[in-house]
Amino acid sequence: MLNSMNKRNLFASIILIILCGFYAYFTANLETRNIQNTTQPSFFPWIITVCLAILSFSLLLQSFLLKKGQILKKASAPRGLIILGFFLSLAYLALLPLIGFLGGNILFFAGLSRIYGEKNILKICLFSVIISIFIFYLFRNVFQIQLPIGILESVLS
């Protein structure tokens, strides 16, 4: 899938051109302010729009004009694990406001630890609990940064 740099460039330049279109649209609709002798808030975004447009089209052109680049080697990435990690992170982030940092971190740590290759369940439990609690108290009591603990709040207090 898209394993030559030229194809990737083509793909990226199309996305960037679409992005540039949206950006231009929103820039055109920015609020203006009636103050004399000043540039409007949309002034700088217009400059960026122009730069972005020029650069994305150059990338598009480059992907056509350049001779066929070498085919990129297939990365030996463990795709399954990465996808698993991605969904674990998504679930963690979605639940974070609800379950809070203490509980969430313990679960997240345990899951990641498994993904990074730790097989011993006991070790996973031990480290995830100890490190998460340690970090949590470090922040709460030493750094004075309040990390919410979600529903655990009512259970613990």
């Binding site: 997240f108 490190i131 970090i135």
Partner: peptide, 8 residues
């Protein structure tokens, strides 16, 4: 995992 948590 420790680094991941610290990022968050």
């Amino acid at each position: 995992p420790t680094i991941a948590i610290l990022c968050v």
